[in-house]
Design a protein around this nucleic acid. Sequence first.
DNA 1: CCCTGCTAATCCACG
DNA 2: ATTAGCAGGG
Length: 738
Amino acid sequence: MDSQDAPLSHLNDEQRAAVLALHGPVLVVAGAGTGKTRTITHRIAMLIREGVAPSAILAVTFTNKAAREMRERVERLVGRGGVRVGTFHGFCASFLREEFPVIGRSGDFSIYDEGDSLALMKKVVEELKLDPAQTRPVDLRRAVGRWKDRFMTPAEAAQASTFGQHAIEARAYALYDANLVAANACDFDDLMIQALRLLLDHEVVRLRWQKRISHVLVDEFQDTNPIQYALVRTLSAPGGNLCVTGDQDQSIYSWRGADPGNFDNFLNDYPSARIVKLERNYRSSANILGAASRLIAHNKRRIAKTLRTQAPAGEAVRVVVFNDDSEEAAAVADAAQTAIREGAQPDEIAVFYRTNSLSLPVERALLARGVRYRVVGGLEFFARAEVKDLIAWLRWMSNRQDTVSFERIMNTPPRGLGDAAVERLEAIAAERGVSLPVLCADATAFGSLPERTRKAALAFCKLIHQLETELQAGRGVRAFAEELLELTAYSAWWATKASKAGSLDPFGNIGQFLTLAGEYDGTRGGRLADFLAEISLLTDLDRTVDDGPAVNLMTLHTSKGLEFDQVYIVGVDQSILPHVWAELEDRDDEEERRLLHVGMTRARQRLVLCAAQLRSRFGQTTVTGPSALLDELGRDGVERFGDESPRRDPRPFKQRWRDNSGDDNWASDASQCDDGEDHPLAALREGSRVFHQDFGAGEVLTVRGHQMGLERKVVVLFDGNQRRTLILRHSGLTLLDT
DNA sequence: CCCTGCTAATCCACG
DNA sequence: ATTAGCAGGG
């Protein structure tokens, strides 16, 4: 693909302009499929040819996979490596590994994923003596996240929130942050925040990196948040050699703080910036591009941009409305199977969906037909209990301050150090002013404990020192992990535990993890801390194992940046795309439209959009019907199949949700909606007296499920002490006056 | 102290 | 439909 010697050949005029704008600020507006990666790659190659040291170039990509590809392509072009290519998180992690000592923190810090972060927040809730039911750790973490996105310190958050719930959240933020520092850990947000703070507050650090890096390139600029933008702006400040590339029509991460307004900010911050627009699409057939363009044209807040192509019309874009999701899944699986039989590469076929849960019916259908597939992301390998345990062990061995990991492994496998023992040990630790992990490594500290606990603690202490010796031996991550599994007796414990649960391959995941560690030892030096950092920062895409040709299943979000010959998008239903939450949270649905647009523009030759009238969700069947977005595709080169009269609720979504609590639907039982409050059982509450034909009179104990939900359940204590759980709709209960 | 079985709560996208 | 949290028995 890339020419060996002429960096400018195979580029069109627009692309060439972007490549040749070597220095100073550059904004490349690159629509889907316009050869953005090729342009960036050539630009890097050009910089190197012009004498810029590879290590002085920093290119930030969205996934490690994209980074790898870019690195390889640059190497092929210029015959040398050394360019810094990686994700924001990856760059910040290596930056902090080097620079944390400047503020007295160890470079061997732990990186907490969402689960770890939540575990820490649970601890904070306990410490603050809050009721976890009323103040949920997830909500607190979300609130903290909002402050972090705005680069606010706990002190600033406290200042801005002096009343009520916000004040509680601010206190939680302060405690959460203090705990992170004490554990020498960073959550994902912290990686960027800490890096930026170091750059802004410490001139030595800033000058060091500004000297080191002369040119910065950012891919997918529309999905960067203000902190990330500040980071690259600071790094590139002396020369102003900042080149950003992106497409506002592909901005789909506002929910995690990305600010598409970055484009305007960039133009304000760099008035002299050169702007290059790439509008020639080389990926999709004319029909696909046409439908995608008509869809996105419905967004009001966008800079008009016209993608052109010289490709032939190709086959028509198909919109198919099925009766239900299993029909939909069967049709997609059939299509995939047929295509493969006719010679298509399985890898070139993809199925996209809005939410991970939608993959299940498709998976079942593919499985039934024997079509190989891989689910990108979704149920995560690294979220498996045994993998998390092992990682927690390794992490704590690498960072002894890591309390979250320590609390996970302290009694895993069980060694007689349960809740009661932990409380006693914590008391001693507090008394001596040391942390729990430090205390446990000190055999002299257990004198006052009850005999049984003392013995358990001593044995644990001995184990820790044994493991330490093993780690010192430095025989690589894999060898150490294997030794750890034996010494801690984890293998034996897990084997019995898993066999009781009926697992066929209890060591499957552990084996896979060891293989991963072995590969790492072989290629990248076998340092435990680096290995841990690397695996913490893998994206869904990077995590997916490539074991042979297979059809690709993934969310629309994950599909960004990829392309396939054939794309099937399932679940283009109302309330799924746009998703209910988008409307409930009062977010505009322009982002949902962009999301569909991203998915559509991944397709080269074939694009099929599927919807269903009925879809089972939460284990129940609800009416959804085709999304209104499907009406916006126009007619040119679009063929429609299935129900011509979609069952679509005419009411605005918010009202529909409020009235039906989202669980019910208007079409399956219209009377329920219309007579709402007049329903004979609408007044039923806890404590109501009811009558049942078989069980007689009784009192309602609990009511579960939504107000008008199909599956609303009631628990009734009938006179005579008989307790029954009934499905309200089918119970035949009548309400008695009291 | 550990395990089992049950109830109750959650369910959007991601590094 | 899946899972986290909890009460109660071994």
